[in-house]
Design a protein around this nucleic acid. Structure first.
Lengths: 229, 229
DNA sequence: GATAGTTTCATACAAATGTTTGAAATGCAA
DNA sequence: TTGCATTTCAAACATTTGTATGAAACTATC
């Protein structure tokens, strides 16, 4: 194991190709051609194609999860142990959206790969994905601390909808661009994050009785009243 | 063309198998075995495997789109030519959610097939999905009539988020169930539709100045009481 | 009931794909 | 250097897959 040159070349080439063309369209021969290595190298270094995909996915999963948890921890420190709900949602959707929607498209190969993994459903990845629930539970716990007394069901739906908007925006950005004839600016990632966070917090606080009218308006005006393109 | 027996047997078997095992796992040989027809029958009747998949998807898509437009038209008639925004959103997400989340989903292979089509991303279906934009434009137009003066960008984002929540709920219902430990009831389709519609309308009206405080509370309370089934 | 058009069938084909193999090359320590 | 383990390589393997073919069976019209 003197130099991982071949091994990492395969990983890089595979991730790039999968990100660009999807799992269904990329063969081992495509990968080794892109990596300039021999066909047998994949099975030598990874055992099988599925294990290569799995390694790719777990690596990136760990990275994204760590980013998210870092943001979450920072938010909790900022709030003295209890993060604000909007900061929690921001920590949840921010890393993914920034990674996948940013104009720095070349550095975001990893993110585009993760989107592929989210769109297509290939066996090795599906197996790993089942563990993601444990990760989301940490966010659910933080949300519970931020909104004590709120019904857990509402909380889960809010978390679910936040991921829905984030992932769907990434998944269907082409369609949204076409539908809006370019009016929806998908390069302004910060505005998109603000938008998703705002709507998520709205969804989470929507059960509030109108006798406490301060909550919602504050959020509405505090966050992105302005998302001009 | 005396009796479409073979043709429809293929369609039925294919839809069932695709619904159960996904596109990646089902071969033409599986389909013809399930349908008790000859292997060559698929190419004879449909031309190719992709055209078979396309026909399956187009058929179901047309059904869903017709349902949506019917609901939209009914809402517009009810409102005297201008439908209420929440009714428009309900027409947009209702048919899909009802079709894919109903408690009779075990028996409805069509619904499970559409879920598969939403989860996996196979070329013939992707091609067809691109035409969906034209269909969505009709909803954008209705929304524009319902909310005159509102910026088009906001309108598209609202439409986009509504579809995001609906589709993500269908796609990830297993995960949501597991994350919430069964607390999120995914069999109560009406409540889910109300929830998605409410959040969507919130997102659409979030730029409103608080000088018109009647809008949001009305929606909040009307959430679980309305039904247009 | 003969005939033309349609459908079914067994079988073959060609291409693609993940995997294996065994030898050659390379690196490294003694 | 020699010897040994690791890595690379070209080639082959074994399946699987969608599709094509040509004959047989069937159907309906005259």
């Amino acid at each position: 194991m003197a130099s991982d040159h071949t091994r990492s070349a395969i990983l890089a080439a595979a991730e790039r190709l999968y990100a660009d063309r999807g799992f269904g369209d990329v063969t081992l021969r495509d990968i080794v051609a892109e990596a300039n290595v021999n066909l047998a190298a994949v099975n030598y270094h990874f055992g099988s194609k599925d294990e290569l995909i799995a390694e790719l996915f777990v690596t990136r999963s760990i990275q994204t999860n760590r980013e998210r948890l870092n943001e979450l921890r920072a938010a909790e420190e900022k709030g003295g142990g209890r993060a604000a709900i909007e900061d929690i949602m921001r920590a949840l959707v921010g890393p993914t959206l920034r990674g996948c929607l940013g104009p720095d498209r070349e550095g975001s190969t990893a993110a585009r790969f993760m989107i592929r993994a989210s769109i297509e459903s290939v066996p090795p990845i599906r197996r790993i994905k089942n563990r993601e629930v444990d990760h989301l539970r940490k966010f659910a716990a933080a949300m519970r601390r931020a909104m004590p007394g709120r019904d857990d069901t509402e909380l889960y739906w809010g978390l679910h909808f936040a991921l829905a908007m984030a992932h769907h925006t990434i998944r269907e950005k082409e369609r949204l661009l076409r539908l809006s004839e370019g009016k929806c600016n998908l390069d302004d990632v910060r505005a998109i994050i603000d938008r998703v966070v705002t709507v998520s917090v709205m969804a989470l606080t929507m059960g509030d009785v109108p006798s406490k009218p301060a909550v919602r308006p504050t959020l509405v005006h505090g966050r992105l009243t302005r998302q001009d393109l």
